[in-house]
């Protein structure tokens, strides 16, 4: 995982603990208090808090401002950055800005196409893709250089992350190869797409381990608890790149409506128990979508609370 940074998330992983991250989706307004409220719900149960960057191409309060707010609360933010909306000038500028506030984690993403969002008629940018963004951050951090060649003194100390989706096309082997490419570009940790198909995920991890890639990148398994059977069906049928086996839809639908939320949490806990035993899994990224208040319960039940304290 090469470069050491001041990132607490990196230190937690390097210390051999199972890391726990979760995320906060900023509001579709200027109400920054929402960020504080959501961060306070989860802060004692996670090592770092991702802030999404206009996820699903819906315009929201910006990730950078929300990360600064979280940092100023004394917590550890992960700046999510998509390449859809900004070119290399804007992204490098935001990285420098984030680093100037002591933000030490970045998640490099390409981002959903704007077709999904609330501004589908907009132009996109895609000057870089996620892999190239990771390369850029690494160059800024390790060489003190911008893509344009300018050299500077005070470097952004970023622990570099990316996403991986073992369930997308065309096959698992290519998904491993693509992650290998991201690792070659400088990615140090990965938060995976929500895992429901355990067999596919295990195949993916076995291939990662066989290539020794699990030692070069820390894999945090993505967990999204289902709220009800409707959500299970929606994710199965409507969300690209998410693989929800029929058995899970049936299980969620097999309990009374008022018990489905509980069943969804139970399912997430079972999945996490199983994932704890998968070689190469270094922690969890819990994406409780508009359900942040459930994160403490999940972390407690899986036995990862209290979070280990790192030496200062």
């Amino acid at each position: 995982m090469s470069a050491e940074t001041p990132s607490r998330l990196q230190k937690m992983i390097n210390a051999g603990h199972l890391a726990v991250t979760s995320e906060v989706g900023p509001p579709r307004s200027a109400d920054g208090v929402v960020i504080e409220h959501k961060a306070n719900l989860i802060k004692d149960y996670v090592d770092a808090i991702n802030v999404t960057d206009n996820q699903t191409s819906v315009c929201r309060l910006c990730s950078l401002a929300a990360c600064i707010r979280i940092k100023q609360m004394g917590l550890e933010p992960v700046l999510q950055m998509v390449t859809r909306d900004r070119n290399r000038i804007a992204m490098q500028s935001d990285i420098l800005g984030a680093a100037s506030f002591g933000i030490n984690n970045i998640l490099c993403l390409t981002g959903d196409h704007q077709h999904f969002g609330d501004h589908s008629s907009c132009a996109n940018v895609f000057d870089l893709d996620s892999t190239q963004l990771a390369m850029t951050v690494r160059m800024m951090r390790d060489e003190g250089k911008l893509l344009g060649g300018y050299e500077f003194e005070v470097r952004p100390q970023m622990f570099i992350g990316a996403a991986a989706n073992p369930f997308a096309g065309p096959n698992v082997a290519i998904r491993v190869a693509r992650l290998a490419k991201k690792v070659a570009a400088g990615v140090q940790f990965v938060q995976t797409q929500c895992i429901y198909n355990m067999d596919t995920f295990k195949t993916f991890m076995k291939m990662m381990v066989d290539r020794g890639l699990h030692e070069k990148v820390a894999i945090l398994a993505g967990i999204t608890p289902m709220k009800n059977v409707g959500m299970a069906k929606y994710m199965k049928n409507r969300v690209p790149g998410i693989d929800v086996p029929d058995a899970i839809v049936q299980r969620m639908g097999g309990v009374p409506k008022e018990k489905q939320a509980e069943e969804g949490i139970n399912l997430a806990i079972e999945q996490m128990e199983e994932l704890k035993g998968v070689e190469g899994v270094r922690g969890f990224h819990i994406m409780a979508i508009e359900w942040e208040e459930k994160v403490p319960e999940i972390v407690q039940r899986i036995g990862l609370y209290p979070r280990p304290q790192l030496a200062a």
């Binding site: 859809r84 390409t110 981002g111 959903d112 196409h113 077709h115 999904f116 996109n124 895609f126 893709d129 996620s130 892999t131 190239q132 996403a163 991986a164 989706n165 997308a168 096309g169 065309p170 290519i174 693509r178 490419k181 991201k182 570009a185 797409q193 690209p240 790149g241």
Partner: peptide
């Protein structure tokens, strides 16, 4: 659809692009 030079993205499914089932995934 995202003119990626290091694709395919995580939205590629069944050989199709996340934007539309009528668009083949270029990276596939």
């Amino acid at each position: 659809s995202k003119r990626m030079l290091n694709g395919p993205c995580g939205g590629s499914e069944g050989g199709k692009c996340e934007v539309s089932k009528d668009i083949p995934c270029g990276w596939e």
